[in-house]
Amino acid sequence: MTEIFSWPFAAEILPALLRGAVVTFIATIGGFFASLIIGAVLLALGRSKQTAIAWLGRGLVELLRSTPLLIQVYVLFFVLPDAGIVLEPVTTGILALGLYHGAYVAEAYRAGLDSIPRGQWDAIESLRFSRFAAYRYLILPQAIAPLVPSLGNTFITMLKDTPILAAITVPELMFAANDAGSQSFRYVEPMTMAAIAYLVMSLIAAFAVFLLRQRLGTRYA
C-alpha cells in the first residue's frame, strides 16, 4: 500500500531538490540584475539621438517582447556557440532571462523617467548640473523609488520563468523535481516540495520589496 505523501521518499529526494533550488535562485538573481542593466542599455539605445541606433533599440525591445522566452532561450543556446561564444547553460539562461525581462524593465524605466515633472529639469538646467550629476544625484533617486513594486514583480515573474531553462539542461528546481519523479514514478512529493520552494522564494522576494519600499518611503513622501 502506498500513502499519498511519503515522508521517507521526500527526505530522500530533498538534497537533490535543494541543489535545484539553489540553481533556480542563482538564475533568478543573475537574470534579475542582468535585466536591470540590459533594461538601462535598451532604454538608452532607444533614446539615442542617432536615429539608426534608436531604431535598433526600439526594434530590439519589440522583438524581445513579442517572442516567447523559450524561443529566445533556444536561440541563445544554439546560436551563441556558432558565434564562438561558449557559455555554461546557466549563464546562457541568465542572459536570456535578462534580455527577455530587460525589455520590460526598459519600459518601467521609461515610465519612471517620464514621471519626473518638467520643473525638475528646469531647476536642474538652471543650476548647471552635468547630465551625469543630474541623473546620479537627482533623477535616478527619484525615478527608482516608484519602480520598486514593478521591479519586485519582475523578480517574481522571473523566478517562475526559470523552469524554461530546463530546456537547455540547466539543472534548476523543476528539472530536479521532474528527475526525481521520473526515476521513482512518484510525482506528488517532488512537485509539492518544488511548489513550496517557489512559494518560499516568492515570499522572501515580496518581503524584500516591502522592506525596500518602507525604507525609501519614509525618507521622503
Binding site: G119, Y137, L138, A145
Partner: peptide
C-alpha cells in the same frame, strides 16, 4: 520658480 521645484529626494 512658482512651484519651487525643489528636489524631493534631498
Amino acid at each position: 520658480f512658482q512651484n519651487f521645484n525643489l528636489f524631493p529626494n534631498l
